[in-house]
Structures are given as structure tokens and as C-alpha cells.
């Protein structure tokens, strides 16, 4: 089932208004005979927080490796802030901050030493390193930790150091690969808050397989499956899409289903037993008000009126478990 065209979003929003910071066109990656990424297109503008969803082994990490220059694509091109990653790797890489799945930390260094090293590595002038480190530590809640050894920090703090490393040179594009894995719920909330904050002045890609995370943090979602993007939508469009569909009502004195079907806006009625009915309706045109009025008028005794939401999880499962002969042929 396909809810929107793969590249629907770039058609829906005029390209002119968006400052595109990252663009990937026709990315392919083969590992021997196996195709890990098959013709992937991606576009990211300032202010976007893109959630990259996919089951394990879908090609998320391979994609991120290609976007950050850790892996050369077999075909296709990546442009970062207007610089081609292959032709001008220096300029392109200076515009990207990357937190891999496992944060690249040197355990024997202190937080301050490590971040100063990262700043220098990313070409920040010696005189401005102190300021960059101060900004990144403040942003990631690492104040007062500068003299601590990274190896002695808890997993949550190590993750923060990893994020600080990714944003130390204030890159326009920040790419985070599963930044909340292995953290406790409080740390997860803090990291999510941080990601949302980053989204205000950076373009962020957040790879994850935690679905609520995407709904909480991201402004756009792309689902990647077998190396290609199978679904792509803006978060508000997604919310509408998910909300669309059905109302569930429970009535104390239910009428004949035909009476319910006559209510304007209701397209179909499914009795669920015990006075409950599912009323299907068109997307974005909820007949809730009309149903309530009809219930009062008819004296049906309205007990419950709930919009039924499809969860992102349902969409995700539908997309990633559905047999896709076309995709499979390419993957084989």
C-alpha cells in the first residue's frame, strides 16, 4: 500500500522557497552481488528534521555513510550545501556533522581535549576553538564535564559528546544515526529535545527505528526498505493521513446501521457489537459533529465518539512487510 508518491513531498512544496542543503540523486551501493541501496533520492532543506525509518538491514546506515563521505556510492551523486561530495570533498564535508551509530570517541581523552581535537580537525581556527567548544558543550548539556575522561562517562553522556562532536563546527547539515539507542527514558527525552532544537537552524537527518521518536521530533518522514525510499511525507501531511479514515462511536440505544449511514459524510458503517460502530469517512472531513447532532436528535445515547487513528507503526509494518516483487528483483 502506498500512501504517497515516493518523491511526493518535493512536488508538494515549491523548491524555490526551500534552501536545499543536502541532495542525493540516484544513490546505489552494491556489496558484491548484494544491493544495499538501490536508486535512493533524498532532499533536505534548512529547518527540516528528516526521520529516516527502516527495519534493520534496510540500508539506513549505508545511506548515511554515503551522505557523509564515509563510503563512496557505486552510482549517483551527493551534494552538500551546493558542493559535490566527490568533486569538492573538503567543502562538502565541512558542511556535515555526523554521529555514527557508535559514537567515534577516544576513551583516553577528556571531553575538552576530544572536542578541541574535533574542532581543529574540522578546520576551526585555533583562536576560535575555545568558543566552539564552549558553545557545543553548552548546547549538549556538558557544562562542567570538560575535564572528565570520556571512558568514564555514562552511555548517555558519551552520546552527548558524540552529538557535540557532530555540531562543533556548526555545520548546516547534521546527521544522527540512532542517537537514542541504549539510553534511559530521561536521557532519551533530553536527546530528542536537543534534536528538535537543532532542527531550528540546521538541517537534521535522524535515523531510527523507534517510531514514536519520529512522530515527536521530525518534520518529515521517509521510510526506507530494501535500499529504496518507499514512503515519504511531511509530518503534518502524515498526521492528516493518519487521522483520516474512521470514527468509532458507542451508543446506549443504537439505531439500525442504515440510520447511521444516512448521516452526511459517513461513507460506510461497520457494526462492532455492544453498540459500537466504526464509521468510515473521507480523509480530512470528519463527520463527528453531524454524528453527535444525529445522536442527540435520535436519542441514541452517545457514550463515546473517538476518531480512529492509524498509527505510524501500522503504516511502517504495511510498507516493510508487504511483498514488493519489483524491489525484490532488483535486490536479488
Amino acid at each position: 500500500m502506498r500512501l504517497a508518491a515516493p518523491r511526493g513531498i518535493s512536488i508538494m512544496i515549491p523548491v524555490m522557497e526551500r534552501e536545499v542543503l543536502l541532495r542525493a540523486e540516484g544513490l546505489y551501493r552494491w556489496y558484491g552481488e548484494r544491493c544495499a541501496v538501490a536508486g535512493l533520492d533524498l532532499e533536505l532543506a534548512r529547518g527540516d528534521v528528516l526521520g529516516l525509518l527502516g527495519p534493520n538491514g534496510a540500508g539506513k546506515t549505508t545511506t548515511l555513510h554515503m551522505l557523509t563521505g564515509n563510503l563512496a556510492p557505486s552510482a549517483g551523486r551527493v551534494t552538500v550545501a551546493g558542493h559535490d561530495l566527490l568533486d569538492e570533498p573538503r567543502a562538502a564535508k565541512a558542511a556535515v556533522g555526523y554521529l555514527p551509530e557508535q559514537p567515534p570517541l577516544y576513551r583516553e581523552l577528556t571531553v575538552g581535549e576530544y572536542l578541541r581535537y574535533c574542532a581543529r580537525l574540522n578546520g576551526i581556527a585555533r583562536a576560535r576553538v575555545g568558543e566552539a567548544v564552549r558553545r557545543a558543550t553548552a548546547r549538549c548539556g556538558l557544562e562542567g564535564m570538560e575535564r572528565r575522561l570520556i571512558g568514564n562517562l555514562s552511555k548517555g553522556y558519551q552520546q552527548r559528546v558524540g552529538i557535540a562532536q557532530a555540531i562543533i563546527h556548526a555545520p548546516p547539515v547534521v546527521i544522527l544515526d540512532e542517537p537514542t539507542v541504549g539510553l534511559d527514558p530521561i536521557q532519551i527525552r533530553e536527546i530528542r529535545e536537543l534534536v528538535r532544537e537543532l532542527g531550528r537552524d540546521h538541517a537534521v537527518i535522524l535515523s531510527t527505528h523507534i517510531l514514536p521518536e519520529v512522530q515527536m521530533v521530525c518534520s518529515r518522514v521517509e521510510i526506507i526498505h530494501r535500499g529504496r525510499i518507499v514512503w515519504s511525507a511531511a509530518m503534518d501531511a502524515l498526521e492528516r493521513e493518519l487521522a483520516a479514515g474512521a470514527l468509532v462511536v458507542r451508543l446506549a440505544r443504537p439505531p439500525e446501521p442504515a440510520a447511521l449511514a444516512e448521516i452526511p459524510g459517513v461513507e460506510a458503517v461497520e457494526p462492532l457489537g455492544e453498540g459500537r460502530f466504526r464509521l468510515r469517512h473521507a480523509a480530512g472531513a470528519s463527520p463527528a459533529e453531524a454524528v453527535a447532532e444525529a445522536a442527540v436528535r435520535g436519542g441514541w445515547g452517545l457514550l463515546e465518539l473517538t476518531p480512529e487513528r492509524r498509527s505510524l507503526e501500522q503504516v511502517f509494518v504495511e510498507l516493510t512487510t508487504a511483498e514488493e516483487p519489483e524491489a525484490r528483483r532488483e535486490a536479488a
Binding site: 563521505g69 564515509n70 555514527p100 580537525l121 578546520g123
Partner: peptide, 14 residues
């Protein structure tokens, strides 16, 4: 082994 190479590969360094 410690997977710190991406730090160098992602930085603007040849």
C-alpha cells in the same frame, strides 16, 4: 576496532 575512523572520514581531511 573502536569505530572512530568515521570521525576522520567525515572531517574535511584527505
Amino acid at each position: 576496532r573502536a569505530r572512530t575512523l568515521p570521525l576522520l572520514y567525515t572531517a574535511p581531511v584527505s
